[in-house]
Design a protein around this nucleic acid. Structure first.
Length: 277
DNA sequence: ACGAGCGCCTGTCGGC
DNA sequence: TGCCGACAGGCGCTCG
């Protein structure tokens, strides 16, 4: 579901609010309702309710696909996985069918975690690094450079597609942006990472940053039945465009399954050198 | 070290 | 219309 640009968009919206709905920073938690216990990674529901109540929201930020609320004493981490969403609602709004958690504030508004597929998880921890330790670099940060990407690619021998989805390799890419980045870079999803040249690594680095920045600019993508306000779905080059002409060369976009994930690419623009299989 | 397969869940869509 | 399989923005686990 939400990848880096969608989570970034949600973080920005929660941080600033909009005309009708309040910004979260500054609000104090009055009450916590947990409607599906397994949405909670840690701690126990009892401890979660007790510890969260009374804390004030200080800051809202993002690490990879994790949304982070820095509170007076703890950090609330939220991972939306495939179908999760966060909504600011009035307390009198009806409880929607797939709400899993509701956090009421000291104003008549609440933050609702809605998640049809129940894959999403919430952590309440004092130190977020415990959860973030295994994450790779932030792709839009200065520490992520073409050189560091080239080095990391060379150190492993992995198919590019699963490697880009590996959050320990790079944090924030998901199925959409991995396919779009590989297309922009002209690299086949199955190409072995240690076969990527320095030139190709530079192009992949540029492509990753480009598609993520475009995604953020468009407020993320809204697809299937989950509408989040963004319109990047109208700018996909290959993702879920099987059979459509490649925007560069006109060859029909192909689909294959890699690591159990649907993978979309242009067979002409993203050739696979025969020796790499 | 790496990849494949499966489990976790609910909803939508296309084919018969 | 109803049923059934395929598929969906993720990730952790086991097993070779």
């Amino acid at each position: 579901m939400p990848e880096l640009p969608e989570v970034e968009t949600i973080a920005r919206n929660l941080r600033t609010g909009n005309g009708d709905l309040p910004a979260l920073p500054g609000l104090r938690v009055r009450q916590v309702e947990l409607l599906w216990d397994r949405s909670l990674a840690t701690p126990s529901p009892q401890e979660f309710r007790g510890r969260l109540t009374g804390q004030r929201v200080e800051q809202i930020w993002r690490r990879g696909k994790f949304l982070v609320l820095t509170l007076s004493r703890d950090h609330l981490l939220i991972h939306l996985r495939m179908s999760g969403d966060l909504l600011v609602e009035r307390v009198e709004d009806p409880i929607a069918p797939h709400h899993r958690m509701m956090i009421d504030f000291d104003v008549p508004y609440r933050l609702s975690f809605n998640d049809p597929r129940k894959f999403g998880r919430v952590w309440l921890v004092d130190d977020p690094q415990v959860v973030f330790r295994s994450l790779g670099p932030e792709p839009l940060s200065e520490e992520f450079t073409a050189q560091s990407l080239y080095r990391s690619l060379s150190e492993r021998r992995r198919q590019l597609k699963p490697l880009l989805l590996d959050q320990g390799f790079i944090a924030g890419l998901g199925n959409i942006y991995a396919d779009e980045a590989l297309f922009r870079a002209g690299l086949h999803p199955l190409l072995a990472s240690d076969q990527v040249s320095e030139q190709q690594a530079l192009r992949l680095w540029e492509s990753i940053r480009l598609v993520l920045e475009e995604g953020i600019l468009r407020n993320g993508a809204s697809i299937d039945w989950v509408y989040r306000g963004g319109d990047y779905q109208n700018y996909f080059r290959v993702y879920q465009r099987t059979g459509d002409p490649c925007p560069v060369c006109g060859t029909p976009v192909a689909r294959m399954v890699v690591g159990q994930r649907g993978t979309h690419y242009c067979p002409q623009c993203q050739p696979l050198p025969s020796q790499s299989l």
